[in-house]
């Protein structure tokens, strides 16, 4: 294998560098290793960083509501609006789990409006009816109930 630094000589050593908490392993030749050991870290770092940014060259995701890019969050640690949590859910979930240890809210919830409570109770009643219909193999009725429930549920945003 050729040296990943100069791309000319044969690689003989394996160097692991930790950048931003991520370790990057590279194969280097003796000449380039010398340069590295001599303290020419900057060159090596630049090379490693170039490698990493290359790896991360994915299309930028932005929040459709406030327009904030995910890369901005990575820099500041702050989200732009409540909708950002929806827009970046896939990226945020592992991060949140790491920081918080858990990923499911267990505390208080906003009190539901009377309207919302009524709606949820209706859906619950329809579900029970639907299960009863399935139990007696009245699938036609079950399908009708299923559609009725669907119509009452809030419109779900299309999964990306």
């Amino acid at each position: 294998m050729l040296c990943e630094e100069c791309g000319e000589r044969q690689a003989e050593v394996l160097v692991t560098t930790v950048v931003g908490g991520e370790s990057v392993t590279r194969h280097l030749c003796r000449e380039c290793l010398k340069k590295y050991q001599a303290g020419d870290l900057q060159a090596v770092l630049a090379a490693v960083l170039a490698l990493m940014t290359q790896k991360e060259k994915q299309p930028e995701i932005t929040c459709p509501h406030c327009g904030m890019a995910f890369s901005e969050f990575e820099k500041s640690g702050m989200l732009g609006c409540a909708e950002c949590y929806q827009a970046f859910r896939a990226q945020l979930t592992p991060l949140i789990t790491k920081v918080q240890g858990r990923a499911q809210h267990a505390g208080r919830r906003p009190r539901l409006s009377a309207e919302e409570q009524e709606r949820q109770q209706k859906i619950e009643a329809l579900r029970t009816q639907m299960e009863a219909a399935v139990a007696v193999e009245n699938f036609e009725e079950a399908a009708r109930l299923r559609d009725e429930i669907r119509a009452m549920e809030p419109a779900r945003e299309a999964e990306a």
Binding site: Y85, A106, P110
Partner: peptide
């Protein structure tokens, strides 16, 4: 109305405060 998510709880500018926000 406060920003709230069934999974993440009360939503805050920094994810270190989400959930209870407490």
């Amino acid at each position: 109305n406060f920003a709230f998510d069934g999974q993440l709880g009360y939503l805050t500018a920094c994810p270190t405060n989400i959930g209870t926000g407490m």
